[in-house]
Amino acid sequence: MRSIQYTQIVEALAKACIKANIIASCDLLEAYQDSIDNDSQNGAKAILKDLLLNAEVAKENNMPICQDTGTAVVFLELGQEIQVEGGYLVDAINEGVRQGYRDGYLRKSIVSHPLERKNTGDNTPAVIHTEIVPGDSFRITVAPKGGGSENMSRLSMLTPAVGWEGFKSFLINAIREAGPNPCPPVVVGACLGGNFESCALEAKKCLLRPIGERNSDPEIAAYEEELLEEINKLNIGPQGFGGDTTAFDVHLSFLPCHIACLPAAINLNCHVARHQSFCL
């Protein structure tokens, strides 16, 4: 067994929350620049330049790129030979989020009750997904997720008969209906297969992949390219005012599923596609 201290988790996660929200990742900065260079519409280019400038101002002013610093979604890949000492793992995650959102001047966006809607004041509880993996590695990813793009995400229990074309039309319709709301250019996480909950979770995990990275399965990679091309023909464009850049990327997963089922989930991310990983 390898031991990890509670305080190590708290400190490292607090830093990751701050960095994820303030520093735009290299793949995102490249995506902004590529779209500025390649979008055929001047209006779209002008908006994309403002979005790139915004990322630079955020870094310079040590301020979040977007005021919606999101639900703190935390993915744990926890080696089965890891032992956490000094406290409960889930408490460590929530304490890290609490400290990061306080010390980074990040917005606290969580209410404790869906109807009473009283703010918890510290952005906890985090949404935590734990995967037990072989060995003694421990990898933590925090992916702050904004509400505007989350609201435009969709899950549908399709029938096996509709196949790829049915899934594609579900996905394209969801993005068309979302229009300007999820702050395009979006990053699309999508999953076909699994069951009700695994499909949604896998779509969210797809958002952790860097912009520009294709699925390692060539068949799925080709589907990703097909979807991206179709989406960028919709002329929704940056902020919904037209252009060739409706999505920066599409990340797709397939999962095994029940003989009766074809679950489909699409989780949209805004252009500030944030995630920060570290190993302890």
């Binding site: 908006i47 403002d50 979005l51 400038l53 915004n54 990322a55 101002v57 955020a58 002013n61 301020m63 979040p64 790129i65 977007c66 005021q67 919606d68 917005r107 606290k108 966006s109 703010n119 004041g121 904004g146 505007g148 300007p180 702050c183 902020q239 005012f241 805004c270 252009h271 500030v272």
Partner: peptide, 27 residues
């Protein structure tokens, strides 16, 4: 419309800010 997700840039155009109501609602 203001540009969604351009919060840092838009903050640079704010000269002053005062909370005037419902402070308990936080953001």
């Amino acid at each position: 419309a203001a540009w969604g997700g351009a919060g840092a840039l838009l903050a640079s155009r704010v000269v002053s800010a005062d909370c005037i109501a419902y402070e308990e609602l936080g953001p």
